[in-house]
Amino acid sequence: MILLRVSLKYDKDTVWIYGAIFFMVLFVFSFLVLQYRIERFIYNRIKKIYDDVALLDAPSLANQPIATDMETLSRKVKKFATDKKLEIEMLQVREHYRREFLGNVSHELKTPLFTVQGYLSTLTDGAFEDKTILKKYLDRAEKGVERLIYIVEDLDMISKLESGELNLEIAEFDIVELIQSIVDMLEMKASKKNISLVLEHNNKPMWVAADKDKLQQVIINLIVNSIKYGKEGGETEISVTGFTSKKILVRVTDNGEGIESQNIPRLFERFYRVNKSGSRSEGGSGLGLSIVKHIVEAHKQKIYVESEYGVGSEFSFTIDRASKKR
Protein backbone atom coordinates (compact mmCIF):
# COMPACT_ATOMS: atom_id res chain seq x y z
CA MET A 1 0.00 0.00 0.00
CA ILE A 2 2.83 2.36 0.84
CA LEU A 3 4.58 1.67 -2.47
CA LEU A 4 1.24 2.10 -4.32
CA ARG A 5 0.60 5.52 -2.73
CA VAL A 6 4.15 6.61 -3.41
CA SER A 7 3.89 5.45 -7.03
CA LEU A 8 0.70 7.56 -7.52
CA LYS A 9 2.22 10.65 -5.92
CA TYR A 10 5.75 10.52 -7.34
CA ASP A 11 7.32 9.69 -10.65
CA LYS A 12 8.79 6.30 -11.57
CA ASP A 13 12.44 7.12 -10.62
CA THR A 14 11.44 8.31 -7.18
CA VAL A 15 9.43 5.16 -6.62
CA TRP A 16 12.45 3.02 -7.46
CA ILE A 17 14.64 4.96 -5.02
CA TYR A 18 12.15 4.61 -2.16
CA GLY A 19 11.66 0.95 -3.02
CA ALA A 20 15.40 0.31 -2.97
CA ILE A 21 15.75 2.09 0.37
CA PHE A 22 12.85 0.08 1.81
CA PHE A 23 14.29 -3.26 0.67
CA MET A 24 17.78 -2.30 1.90
CA VAL A 25 16.40 -1.41 5.33
CA LEU A 26 14.42 -4.64 5.36
CA PHE A 27 17.52 -6.63 4.34
CA VAL A 28 19.72 -5.03 7.03
CA PHE A 29 17.03 -5.56 9.67
CA SER A 30 16.55 -9.20 8.63
CA PHE A 31 20.32 -9.77 8.53
CA LEU A 32 20.78 -8.36 12.03
CA VAL A 33 17.90 -10.43 13.41
CA LEU A 34 19.22 -13.59 11.77
CA GLN A 35 22.79 -12.90 12.93
CA TYR A 36 21.60 -12.34 16.49
CA ARG A 37 19.55 -15.53 16.44
CA ILE A 38 22.42 -17.57 14.96
CA GLU A 39 24.92 -16.13 17.45
CA ARG A 40 22.58 -16.93 20.33
CA PHE A 41 22.15 -20.44 18.96
CA ILE A 42 25.94 -20.95 18.69
CA TYR A 43 26.53 -19.28 22.07
CA ASN A 44 24.01 -21.56 23.79
CA ARG A 45 25.52 -24.66 22.19
CA ILE A 46 29.07 -23.64 23.12
CA LYS A 47 27.97 -22.63 26.62
CA LYS A 48 26.59 -26.14 27.04
CA ILE A 49 30.06 -27.49 26.16
CA TYR A 50 31.61 -25.21 28.81
CA ASP A 51 28.98 -26.30 31.35
CA ASP A 52 29.63 -29.98 30.56
CA VAL A 53 33.36 -29.39 31.01
CA ALA A 54 32.69 -27.56 34.28
CA LEU A 55 30.99 -30.71 35.57
CA LEU A 56 34.40 -32.40 35.28
CA ASP A 57 35.81 -29.93 37.81
CA ALA A 58 37.68 -27.62 35.46
CA PRO A 59 37.36 -24.21 37.18
CA SER A 60 40.23 -22.76 35.16
CA LEU A 61 38.32 -23.39 31.94
CA ALA A 62 34.82 -22.70 33.25
CA ASN A 63 35.78 -19.26 34.62
CA GLN A 64 37.17 -18.05 31.30
CA PRO A 65 35.12 -15.84 28.95
CA ILE A 66 33.04 -17.96 26.57
CA ALA A 67 34.54 -17.73 23.09
CA THR A 68 32.28 -18.31 20.08
CA ASP A 69 35.30 -18.71 17.84
CA MET A 70 35.47 -22.45 17.12
CA GLU A 71 39.25 -22.47 16.71
CA THR A 72 39.73 -20.83 20.12
CA LEU A 73 37.23 -23.19 21.71
CA SER A 74 38.87 -26.20 20.09
CA ARG A 75 42.28 -25.09 21.38
CA LYS A 76 40.96 -24.59 24.93
CA VAL A 77 39.16 -27.92 25.03
CA LYS A 78 42.19 -29.70 23.57
CA LYS A 79 44.43 -28.15 26.23
CA PHE A 80 41.93 -29.14 28.91
CA ALA A 81 41.81 -32.72 27.58
CA THR A 82 45.64 -32.91 27.49
CA ASP A 83 45.93 -31.58 31.05
CA LYS A 84 43.32 -34.05 32.30
CA LYS A 85 45.07 -36.91 30.53
CA LEU A 86 48.38 -36.02 32.20
CA GLU A 87 46.60 -35.68 35.55
CA ILE A 88 44.98 -39.11 35.15
CA GLU A 89 48.31 -40.69 34.18
CA MET A 90 49.97 -39.10 37.22
CA LEU A 91 47.20 -40.38 39.48
CA GLN A 92 47.62 -43.86 38.01
CA VAL A 93 51.38 -43.74 38.68
CA ARG A 94 50.78 -42.53 42.23
CA GLU A 95 48.20 -45.23 42.80
CA HIS A 96 50.70 -47.84 41.59
CA TYR A 97 53.38 -46.45 43.93
CA ARG A 98 50.86 -46.29 46.79
CA ARG A 99 49.93 -49.96 46.39
CA GLU A 100 53.59 -50.93 46.10
CA PHE A 101 54.50 -48.82 49.13
CA LEU A 102 51.74 -50.37 51.25
CA GLY A 103 52.85 -53.83 50.14
CA ASN A 104 56.45 -53.04 51.08
CA VAL A 105 55.47 -51.61 54.47
CA SER A 106 53.36 -54.68 55.14
CA HIS A 107 56.24 -56.99 54.21
CA GLU A 108 58.87 -55.07 56.19
CA LEU A 109 56.74 -54.99 59.34
CA LYS A 110 55.28 -58.46 58.96
CA THR A 111 58.64 -60.25 58.80
CA PRO A 112 59.97 -59.16 62.23
CA LEU A 113 56.47 -59.35 63.76
CA PHE A 114 56.06 -62.97 62.72
CA THR A 115 59.60 -63.69 63.90
CA VAL A 116 58.87 -62.30 67.35
CA GLN A 117 55.49 -64.04 67.44
CA GLY A 118 57.03 -67.37 66.44
CA TYR A 119 59.72 -67.35 69.11
CA LEU A 120 57.32 -66.19 71.85
CA SER A 121 54.71 -68.77 70.85
CA THR A 122 57.35 -71.52 71.04
CA LEU A 123 58.36 -70.35 74.50
CA THR A 124 54.79 -70.17 75.79
CA ASP A 125 54.20 -73.70 74.47
CA GLY A 126 56.75 -75.00 76.99
CA ALA A 127 60.20 -74.30 75.58
CA PHE A 128 60.86 -71.71 78.33
CA GLU A 129 61.71 -74.59 80.67
CA ASP A 130 64.97 -75.12 78.77
CA LYS A 131 67.14 -72.16 79.85
CA THR A 132 69.44 -72.46 76.82
CA ILE A 133 66.54 -72.28 74.36
CA LEU A 134 64.86 -69.59 76.47
CA LYS A 135 67.86 -67.24 76.23
CA LYS A 136 68.43 -67.92 72.52
CA TYR A 137 64.78 -67.35 71.58
CA LEU A 138 64.47 -64.23 73.72
CA ASP A 139 67.61 -62.79 72.10
CA ARG A 140 66.17 -63.45 68.62
CA ALA A 141 62.80 -61.98 69.61
CA GLU A 142 64.62 -58.91 70.92
CA LYS A 143 66.39 -58.48 67.55
CA GLY A 144 63.01 -58.64 65.82
CA VAL A 145 61.66 -55.92 68.13
CA GLU A 146 64.77 -53.79 67.50
CA ARG A 147 64.20 -54.08 63.75
CA LEU A 148 60.57 -52.98 64.18
CA ILE A 149 61.68 -49.98 66.25
CA TYR A 150 64.32 -49.14 63.61
CA ILE A 151 61.72 -49.16 60.81
CA VAL A 152 59.19 -47.10 62.79
CA GLU A 153 61.82 -44.52 63.81
CA ASP A 154 62.97 -44.14 60.19
CA LEU A 155 59.38 -43.71 58.99
CA ASP A 156 58.79 -41.15 61.72
CA MET A 157 61.90 -39.21 60.68
CA ILE A 158 60.85 -39.15 57.01
CA SER A 159 57.35 -37.97 57.95
CA LYS A 160 58.79 -35.16 60.06
CA LEU A 161 61.25 -34.15 57.34
CA GLU A 162 58.46 -34.04 54.74
CA SER A 163 56.13 -32.01 56.95
CA GLY A 164 58.90 -29.66 58.11
CA GLU A 165 58.42 -30.62 61.77
CA LEU A 166 62.02 -31.76 62.17
CA ASN A 167 64.09 -28.62 62.66
CA LEU A 168 67.71 -28.60 61.57
CA GLU A 169 70.31 -27.42 64.07
CA ILE A 170 72.81 -25.66 61.82
CA ALA A 171 76.36 -25.43 63.11
CA GLU A 172 79.80 -24.95 61.59
CA PHE A 173 82.20 -27.91 61.68
CA ASP A 174 85.01 -29.61 59.77
CA ILE A 175 83.40 -32.16 57.46
CA VAL A 176 86.72 -33.92 56.80
CA GLU A 177 87.04 -34.68 60.51
CA LEU A 178 83.44 -35.93 60.60
CA ILE A 179 83.95 -38.27 57.63
CA GLN A 180 87.20 -39.61 59.09
CA SER A 181 85.43 -40.55 62.32
CA ILE A 182 82.71 -42.31 60.30
CA VAL A 183 85.32 -44.21 58.26
CA ASP A 184 87.03 -45.34 61.47
CA MET A 185 83.67 -46.48 62.87
CA LEU A 186 82.72 -48.49 59.74
CA GLU A 187 86.13 -50.04 59.00
CA MET A 188 85.29 -53.24 60.87
CA LYS A 189 82.00 -53.62 58.95
CA ALA A 190 83.84 -53.10 55.65
CA SER A 191 86.59 -55.54 56.61
CA LYS A 192 84.06 -58.39 56.76
CA LYS A 193 83.81 -58.11 52.95
CA ASN A 194 87.47 -57.09 52.61
CA ILE A 195 86.40 -53.65 51.33
CA SER A 196 88.81 -50.74 51.76
CA LEU A 197 87.44 -47.36 52.87
CA VAL A 198 89.53 -44.50 51.48
CA LEU A 199 89.07 -40.81 52.33
CA GLU A 200 90.40 -38.44 49.65
CA HIS A 201 90.86 -34.74 50.43
CA ASN A 202 93.49 -32.02 50.24
CA ASN A 203 94.72 -32.56 53.84
CA LYS A 204 93.08 -29.31 54.93
CA PRO A 205 90.01 -28.83 57.10
CA MET A 206 86.85 -28.01 55.13
CA TRP A 207 84.31 -26.17 57.21
CA VAL A 208 80.62 -26.44 56.41
CA ALA A 209 77.36 -25.11 57.84
CA ALA A 210 74.87 -27.93 58.41
CA ASP A 211 73.13 -30.10 60.98
CA LYS A 212 76.05 -32.28 62.08
CA ASP A 213 74.01 -35.23 63.35
CA LYS A 214 71.78 -35.34 60.26
CA LEU A 215 74.74 -35.00 57.90
CA GLN A 216 76.50 -37.79 59.75
CA GLN A 217 73.45 -39.98 59.13
CA VAL A 218 73.59 -39.15 55.39
CA ILE A 219 77.25 -40.13 55.10
CA ILE A 220 76.83 -43.29 57.20
CA ASN A 221 73.87 -44.43 55.07
CA LEU A 222 75.78 -43.85 51.82
CA ILE A 223 78.92 -45.66 53.01
CA VAL A 224 76.92 -48.57 54.50
CA ASN A 225 75.09 -48.90 51.18
CA SER A 226 78.39 -49.00 49.29
CA ILE A 227 79.59 -51.77 51.61
CA LYS A 228 76.30 -53.67 51.35
CA TYR A 229 76.35 -53.70 47.54
CA GLY A 230 80.13 -53.65 47.12
CA LYS A 231 82.06 -56.63 45.83
CA GLU A 232 84.47 -58.71 47.92
CA GLY A 233 87.91 -57.08 47.97
CA GLY A 234 86.51 -53.86 46.52
CA GLU A 235 86.98 -50.24 47.51
CA THR A 236 84.79 -47.34 48.62
CA GLU A 237 86.24 -43.88 48.13
CA ILE A 238 84.89 -40.84 49.96
CA SER A 239 86.09 -37.52 48.58
CA VAL A 240 85.52 -33.92 49.64
CA THR A 241 86.13 -31.20 47.05
CA GLY A 242 85.20 -27.61 46.38
CA PHE A 243 82.10 -27.35 44.19
CA THR A 244 81.62 -23.58 44.05
CA SER A 245 82.80 -20.67 46.16
CA LYS A 246 79.83 -21.31 48.46
CA LYS A 247 79.40 -25.08 48.29
CA ILE A 248 81.35 -28.27 48.91
CA LEU A 249 80.76 -31.57 47.11
CA VAL A 250 80.93 -34.89 48.95
CA ARG A 251 81.27 -38.06 46.82
CA VAL A 252 80.90 -41.70 47.86
CA THR A 253 82.15 -43.97 45.05
CA ASP A 254 82.36 -47.75 44.96
CA ASN A 255 83.31 -50.42 42.41
CA GLY A 256 80.47 -52.75 43.36
CA GLU A 257 77.69 -54.29 41.32
CA GLY A 258 76.28 -50.97 40.10
CA ILE A 259 72.66 -50.09 39.38
CA GLU A 260 70.71 -50.73 36.21
CA SER A 261 69.51 -47.52 34.54
CA GLN A 262 65.78 -48.32 34.92
CA ASN A 263 66.18 -48.50 38.71
CA ILE A 264 67.97 -45.17 39.19
CA PRO A 265 64.85 -42.91 39.09
CA ARG A 266 63.26 -44.89 41.94
CA LEU A 267 66.29 -45.29 44.19
CA PHE A 268 65.09 -42.74 46.75
CA GLU A 269 61.58 -44.15 47.15
CA ARG A 270 60.67 -45.59 50.54
CA PHE A 271 61.34 -49.34 50.76
CA TYR A 272 62.38 -49.52 47.10
CA ARG A 273 65.08 -52.15 46.68
CA VAL A 274 67.11 -52.79 43.56
CA ASN A 275 67.78 -56.38 44.60
CA LYS A 276 64.53 -57.34 46.30
CA SER A 277 65.72 -60.74 47.51
CA GLY A 278 69.34 -60.23 48.48
CA SER A 279 69.07 -56.77 50.00
CA ARG A 280 66.61 -57.83 52.69
CA SER A 281 69.04 -60.43 53.91
CA GLU A 282 71.58 -57.63 54.39
CA GLY A 283 69.31 -55.97 56.94
CA GLY A 284 68.35 -52.31 57.14
CA SER A 285 64.91 -50.73 56.98
CA GLY A 286 64.86 -50.06 53.25
CA LEU A 287 64.50 -46.36 54.07
CA GLY A 288 68.16 -45.34 54.08
CA LEU A 289 68.34 -43.59 50.70
CA SER A 290 64.94 -41.99 51.19
CA ILE A 291 66.18 -40.49 54.46
CA VAL A 292 69.38 -39.35 52.73
CA LYS A 293 67.39 -37.51 50.05
CA HIS A 294 65.07 -35.83 52.56
CA ILE A 295 67.93 -34.66 54.82
CA VAL A 296 69.92 -33.28 51.87
CA GLU A 297 66.85 -31.48 50.50
CA ALA A 298 66.02 -30.16 53.99
CA HIS A 299 69.41 -28.40 53.78
CA LYS A 300 68.22 -26.98 50.40
CA GLN A 301 70.91 -28.99 48.61
CA LYS A 302 71.00 -31.52 45.76
CA ILE A 303 71.93 -35.19 45.66
CA TYR A 304 73.18 -36.89 42.48
CA VAL A 305 73.56 -40.50 41.36
CA GLU A 306 75.77 -41.94 38.63
CA SER A 307 76.02 -45.66 38.12
CA GLU A 308 76.98 -48.25 35.55
CA TYR A 309 75.80 -51.78 36.02
CA GLY A 310 78.69 -54.12 36.71
CA VAL A 311 81.14 -51.22 37.21
CA GLY A 312 80.05 -49.28 40.29
CA SER A 313 78.10 -46.32 41.62
CA GLU A 314 78.73 -42.79 42.80
CA PHE A 315 76.45 -40.84 45.12
CA SER A 316 77.28 -37.17 45.66
CA PHE A 317 75.67 -34.21 47.38
CA THR A 318 76.40 -30.55 47.96
CA ILE A 319 76.58 -28.73 51.27
CA ASP A 320 77.08 -25.05 52.14
CA ARG A 321 80.50 -23.84 53.17
CA ALA A 322 80.82 -22.17 56.56
CA SER A 323 80.41 -18.41 56.43
CA LYS A 324 83.55 -17.78 58.49
CA LYS A 325 86.95 -18.42 56.95
CA ARG A 326 89.11 -20.62 59.11
Rank of each mutant, 00 (worst) to 15 (best):
I2F: 15
L3Y: 15
L4K: 15
R5V: 09
V6R: 08
V6T: 15
K12H: 15
K12N: 14
V15R: 14
I17G: 01
I17M: 08
I21W: 02
V25M: 09
V28W: 07
R40F: 14
N44K: 13
R45W: 09
I49F: 12
Y50C: 09
D51R: 03
L55D: 08
L56C: 08
D57F: 13
A58N: 04
A58L: 12
P65Q: 04
K76W: 13
K76A: 11
V77A: 04
F80I: 03
D83V: 06
K84C: 03
L86I: 12
E87D: 05
E89P: 12
V93E: 08
R94T: 04
E95C: 04
H96F: 15
Y97K: 02
Y97F: 08
R98T: 04
L102A: 07
G103V: 02
H107F: 15
L109C: 06
T115W: 02
T122E: 07
D125E: 05
G126F: 12
D130C: 11
I133G: 06
K135R: 02
Y137F: 10
R140G: 00
G144L: 08
E146G: 07
R147Y: 07
R147L: 03
R147M: 08
I149W: 06
D154I: 01
S159G: 11
S159H: 13
L161E: 01
S163C: 03
G164Q: 14
L166K: 14
L166Q: 07
E169R: 13
E172W: 05
Q180W: 13
L186P: 02
L186Q: 01
K192A: 12
N194F: 15
K204M: 13
V208R: 00
Q216R: 11
Q216Y: 11
I220T: 06
I223A: 05
I227H: 07
E232D: 09
T241E: 10
F243K: 15
F243P: 01
S245N: 11
K247A: 03
R251H: 07
E257P: 03
G258K: 10
Q262F: 09
L267S: 01
E269P: 11
Y272P: 00
R273L: 12
K276Q: 11
S277L: 11
S277G: 09
R280W: 12
E282L: 07
E282C: 04
E282I: 01
G286M: 01
S290C: 13
S290K: 02
A298R: 00
H299Y: 00
I303Y: 01
V305R: 09
S307E: 10
Y309V: 03
G310C: 09
S313A: 10
F315I: 00
T318K: 00
